[in-house]
């Protein structure tokens, strides 16, 4: 991914400088998905839009640095998939994150916010317990999300780095799953934001790993990259088991910082 990132940025900049075309157009000729299918999924067959996975994304993003995505996985045994990978074809680092689900996971409804750097296909690829791949794709019009400044108030961002919060929502009628939202204060610097005072890029600093457990049971484990928005925000489902349960989250970033939080599972309403 590092190699891809540097190659892409160089290509983008040279393209923009020499042709004075926007980066999106300069790179429009190739279809990045072909390479991604090979690199990320080893060209395994992927069923497209077969209804097992759906992806909600805005057609045009209001803020390219904060594009909301919601993924729903439906259907029988597949409703707790093995994993979910989010990709944005034309981002410098196309793999946004991979979520692996454990026995604590509920029926998968997962929402998060991403950076979109150019008009691009956004993809959600689910791997079932049986090992088959299923994909939903949406085209999103947004640009510049990866180089956009992380947060509006730079002082606040530094002061609150590492703060975690978990919100829990009332159970949907008839559902055995509960819904919660994990919020982490972190700039998730992409490494693509240049500090023009120094001429240097602000070093990449982002959440690489996140694990959420209900008691000892794994709800999900995430490997993330720079395409997750600043202040990573993940809304997920879990399967409640009994009284006195605790949800825990452990996140690690590229600086080796470890962030932890734990919250008792609430019985009913919003936190």
């Amino acid at each position: 991914m590092t190699e891809r990132l540097s190659r892409r940025s160089v290509l983008g900049f040279v393209g923009a400088a020499l042709s004075s075309l926007p980066i999106t157009q300069a790179l429009a000729e190739d279809d990045p998905w072909l390479g991604l299918h090979q690199d990320v999924f080893g060209n395994r067959p992927i069923a497209e839009e077969d209804g097992l996975v759906t992806l909600e994304a805005p057609v045009r993003a209001e803020d390219a640095a904060l594009v909301p995505l919601t993924v729903r996985v439906s259907g029988g045994d597949a409703s707790r998939p093995r994993s979910l990978t989010l990709l944005i074809d034309r981002n410098p680092a196309p793999v946004v994150a991979t979520f692996s689900f454990g026995e604590g996971a509920g029926e998968v409804v997962l929402a998060t916010r991403v950076r979109v750097d150019a008009y691009s296909n956004v993809r959600a690829v689910v791997e079932t317990q049986a090992g088959s791949l299923h994909m939903a794709t949406r085209y999103v019009k947004a640009s510049g999300g990866c180089s956009a400044p992380a947060l509006k108030d730079s002082e606040l961002a530094e002061a609150e780095l590492g703060k975690m919060r978990l919100r829990q929502f009332a159970a949907a009628p008839g559902s055995t799953s509960r819904e919660a939202q994990l919020m982490i204060r972190h700039p998730n610097h992409s490494g693509l934001q240049m500090n023009q005072l120094t001429g240097y890029y602000i070093p990449a600093k982002f959440i690489t790993d996140l694990e959420v457990r209900r008691g000892a049971a794994l709800v999900f484990r995430m490997e993330g990259g720079i395409s997750l928005s600043a202040d990573p925000n993940i809304r997920f489902t879990f399967r409640p088991a009994g009284a006195d349960e605790v949800l825990t989250a452990v996140a690690k970033d590229t600086d080796g910082r470890v962030l932890r939080g734990s919250w008792p599972v609430k019985s009913g309403d919003d936190s």
């Binding site: 180089s147 934001q193 023009q196």
Partner: peptide, 20 residues
């Protein structure tokens, strides 16, 4: 006093977007 830093983080993007 925060203008310089704010611009530093955004200059590239402002220039590219607005040139377009």
């Amino acid at each position: 006093h925060k203008l310089a830093q704010a611009l530093a983080a955004r200059a590239d993007r402002y220039l590219a977007v607005n040139a377009q």
